[in-house]
Write a protein that binds this DNA or RNA. Structure first.
Length: 116
DNA sequence: TTTATGGCTGTCA
DNA sequence: ATGACAGCCATAA
């Protein structure tokens, strides 16, 4: 309709954020959503990832929920697969399969090139 | 156009 | 610590 969809790059925004996630680091949906200027559209982030185009180099597996765990998606084995990918990147999982967000939470750079 | 759902989040018990 | 309810916003039908 005549209403502006804002920008058609809503997906791109999410993709851009996820793409910025370094290895050995994880980000939550809410965090990505906030960084993508989507506000509380954390769910949409998950949808965007669900709608991921095939062949995307998007590290969607680095995006987890606020519990520090992968989404218990319907497909059995997907959570294990995601966890496996993160483990290879150096992310440590708990017995429950949880990650210490306090330690592995990706800290986005506000503006300057922050490297420590 | 509206309606329904969802890879979530945060608070309350 | 976990379990349940409601809120939020975009995509799909």
């Amino acid at each position: 309709m005549a209403l502006k969809e804002g920008v058609q790059g809503r997906y791109e925004r999410i993709y851009a954020v996820v793409e910025q996630i370094p290895e050995g680091r994880v980000a939550t949906y809410g965090q990505v959503a906030a960084m993508a200027k989507l506000g509380r559209a954390a769910r949409q982030v998950g949808y965007a990832l669900h709608s991921l185009p095939e062949g995307s180099d998007l590290p969607w597996h680095r995006v987890i929920n606020s519990r520090g765990e992968v989404s218990p998606r319907a497909l059995p084995g997907w959570d294990g697969y995601q966890r496996h990918l993160l483990e290879e990147e150096g992310v440590e999982f708990d017995e429950r399969g949880r990650v210490d967000l306090e330690r592995f939470r990706w800290e986005p750079a506000p503006r300057a090139t922050r490297a420590r």
